[in-house]
């Protein structure tokens, strides 16, 4: 079962108006840090491109904070929880 299919089982209210996590300019961030983001995100939302640039999609985020711990202030320009009622809604937890 693909990660995309797993996320499709979950309930999210995606905040189309504002991204709660924003990438910084990562050109000076060590590649190792970017790789850790790709490796650590349980929802697999970080992708490292062949040219070394980093992609991130906040839809599907569990708001767990792993990327905050790894890269707050380096690869991430902003990290907050989504606005009230937005984001993941666990029905089991």
């Amino acid at each position: 079962m693909s990660l995309e299919a797993k996320l499709a089982v979950d309930r999210f209210a995606v905040d189309e108006e504002s991204a709660h996590i924003r990438l910084a300019d990562t050109s000076d961030v060590p590649r190792e840090t970017l790789e850790l983001l790709v490796r650590g995100c349980p929802a697999g939302l970080y992708r490292l491109n062949d040219d070394g640039s980093l992609d991130f999609d906040y839809a599907g985020c569990f708001e767990c904070g792993t990327c905050y711990v790894l890269a707050h202030g380096t690869a991430l320009a902003a990290w907050h929880f989504p606005r009230g009622e937005m984001g993941i809604e666990y029905r089991r937890g």
Partner: peptide, 9 residues
């Protein structure tokens, strides 16, 4: 059947 997938610290 998968009914939820999640992550947390």
């Amino acid at each position: 059947t998968l009914v939820e997938y999640g992550g947390h610290l």
